Amino acid sequence: MSDTVYLLEMIGIVAFAISGMIVARSKNMDPVGVFTIGFITALGGGTLRDLIMDNHPVYWIRHEEQPILILAMAIVFSYWNRAGRMRESRIVLPDAIGLGVFSILGAQLALDLGHSWFIASLLGVMTGTFGGALRDTLCNEVPYIFRKDQIYASISFAGCWIYFVCQWYFHNETISLTVGLLFITVVRMLAVRFDIRLQRDSMQP
């Protein structure tokens, strides 16, 4: 794995772990709960991807520095008083970053293993959304991916295809990764800011 991809992987892990730990603290979980939610949010999507593609051992087992980092973050979040006062709305930015990073990296890995663009895009969406879905489910919230509000999974899907097209056109991995990641992150933030949805209730203006 190139240094750039590894750096993006670590950024995604930190971003998703932060989003999970903010939600866990808002639910008054103890340090074990904070670590568990952070771990599942950060690594759940990649674990599902590896299991589906029969990629063993799963990625984080081969890179133990990742769960160790999440454990260190959980300790800080558990005993940092300000973290307990963070609102759940604060997870939007780290969640958007994590969605972008893991969607594109999941799609990239699927392509490297010889899968088609369509299958790779589905695996990218799974990688980017599954950890957050587990986070919300365990915290008794409706997962973003199932909410009838701002677009989420569809942004991940579109971003994967933008990555594929850039890869085909530019033949440059760095450009393709950057464009795909930025598209997903920025569009997700804009969707939240401007309440962009795929469908609105008939009674809603």
Rank of each mutant, 00 (worst) to 15 (best):
A72Q: 02
G12N: 10
F77Y: 08
M1N: 06
N140C: 08
S19R: 10
I104S: 02
I175L: 15
A107D: 08
G46P: 04
G128W: 05
D195M: 06
F35I: 07
G84A: 10
R193T: 13
D50C: 00
I18H: 07
F157N: 04
I11T: 09
V32Q: 09
L48I: 14
W60Q: 02
I162Q: 05
N140S: 14
F146I: 09
W60H: 06
L93M: 14
D195F: 09
D201G: 08
D195H: 14
I151D: 05
I61H: 06
I22C: 10
F16L: 14
G106D: 06
M126R: 01
P31V: 13
D149V: 00
F194M: 11
Q167K: 12
S116G: 15
N81S: 12
E173S: 14
V58L: 04
G100T: 06
F194V: 08
R197G: 05
I40S: 10
D30M: 06
I91S: 01
T174I: 15
M189Y: 11
W80S: 12
D54P: 03
P143G: 11
I70N: 04
F170P: 02
D50L: 00
R82S: 12
T47D: 08
M53S: 08
P94W: 02
A133N: 02
H115F: 15
P57I: 04
E141A: 08
V5I: 15
L190Q: 11
S89V: 07
T174E: 15
W117A: 15
P67M: 07
R85H: 09
P57A: 03
Q150T: 12
L99P: 02
I162P: 11
S19H: 11
A72Y: 01
L177N: 10
L181E: 04
Y59Q: 11
H56G: 01
K148S: 12
